[in-house]
Amino acid sequence: MSDAIHHFIEQYGLIAVFLGCVAEGESAAILGGFFAHQHIFILWQTVVVAALGAFAGDTCFFILGRSFADHRYVVGLRKRPGFRRAYRLLNTHPNIFVLSNRYVYGMRLVGGIAAGLSNIAAPRFIVLNAISSAVWAVLFSTIGYVFGLGAEHFIGQALLRHERILVGLAIGLAVAVFAWLIARHFARKERAREN
């Protein structure tokens, strides 16, 4: 069973990192770095895939906001907690907002939509988004790689490579669930504040 999981991660893991980074993605980038430490991926490939996924995701959200502002999906996203604050920050500090939006968990989606609805020029958004995506990918992939070093030191060489991969997957899943719970908590607070 663990051999099949190992083979599956080797074959499709970077695709999963890309797709995970298109969405909120911190967990995907961290897991990619962890698997790079386990010699399943190459670290620079993980960084490139994570950066491309983050860039593609934010660019898609920007295009949704810019080109499909009246679509019911976009209208629904505009009602999400934090959208008004994101839009206000974007119009007062557009460069800082685009560069830092991806670091605030749960704001990436509404931030991309808000950027598309704002008056920021598309080429300016693309350049700022590319810079932010690259820095973000290096940071979170490196965190995963360093986490792999720490995990290896903590659990030692006693566990087989496959078992370390399963431990990494379990920790990644736990981090994703924890981050989702935190985002949900802050969304509730934001909704209460807006009412």
Rank of each mutant, 00 (worst) to 15 (best):
V22L: 13
A23K: 01
D70F: 12
H6P: 00
W44R: 10
L19M: 15
G33C: 13
F8I: 03
I42V: 15
A51M: 12
H6G: 09
V48R: 03
W44N: 11
H39P: 06
G57I: 05
G33D: 07
I40L: 15
G53V: 07
T46L: 10
L43C: 10
H7Q: 14
Q45A: 12
V49C: 13
F55G: 00
G13A: 11
G33L: 10
T59D: 00
D70S: 15
R72P: 14
F61C: 12
H6M: 14
G25W: 04
L64A: 15
Q11E: 12
Q45G: 08
T59A: 08
L52S: 07
G25E: 02
A36M: 11
F34T: 02
F35P: 08
F8N: 04
V47F: 05
I42E: 13
E10R: 11
Q11Y: 00
E10F: 07
F61K: 03
G53R: 02
V49Q: 00
H37W: 13
H37E: 11
A36H: 05
L14E: 10
V17H: 02
L14F: 08
F35K: 02
F62S: 07
Y12G: 13
L43R: 05
Y12D: 10
I30M: 15
L14I: 10
V47D: 00
C60N: 06
F62W: 10
E26P: 05
G53M: 04
L52I: 08
A50S: 13
V17Y: 06
H6F: 14
L52W: 04
G32K: 01
I30Q: 00
G65D: 07
L64Q: 07
Q45T: 05
R66I: 06
S67R: 15
V47M: 14
I9N: 01
A69W: 10
F68R: 14
A51I: 07
C21E: 08
F18Q: 08
G33F: 06
D58S: 10
V17D: 10
L52F: 14
A50Q: 01
L14A: 07
H71P: 01
Q11N: 09
G13W: 04
F35G: 01
H6V: 11
E24Y: 01
Q38L: 15
V49S: 09
L31W: 04
